[in-house]
Amino acid sequence: MIDVQLAALLCSGCFILVGLYAAIFLDNIIKKIIGISFIEEGANLFLITLAYKPKGVVPILLPNMSPDWFITNSAYPLPHALVLTSVVIGASTLAVILAIAMVLYKKHGSLSASEILGDSNE
């Protein structure tokens, strides 16, 4: 059986690489933005994977649990809190980029990055 944590780590690495590929090589701005969101999700998946514990429990101390058992079996709660914040930030950044993409499309009638994001001095 595959180790879930290892699989998730590899998956997050693939997300980042695929996202970088899309952001660099694809010309359409919307596709670039999708690539960017892939990079963000890869980073988030990486963070959340750090908190994984095989057969762990949710880090909430219930009245019928003994503290020693809880300490050895609960997952690490900090990355969850961090990822929650970073997802929110990522979503708002994405909203701003998409809004700018809309304005650019209205202005130029095209979404080709090499056309509208080329050198402005030429």
Partner: peptide, 25 residues
């Protein structure tokens, strides 16, 4: 040119930001 520059800044920033986050991870 403000929208074009902002778009470039956001695209480059969206590569730099998550890379920083991965380092923190």
């Amino acid at each position: 040119q403000r929208y074009e520059t902002a778009m470039k800044y956001m695209i480059l920033g969206s590569i730099g930001g998550p890379i920083l986050l991965t380092g923190i991870g």
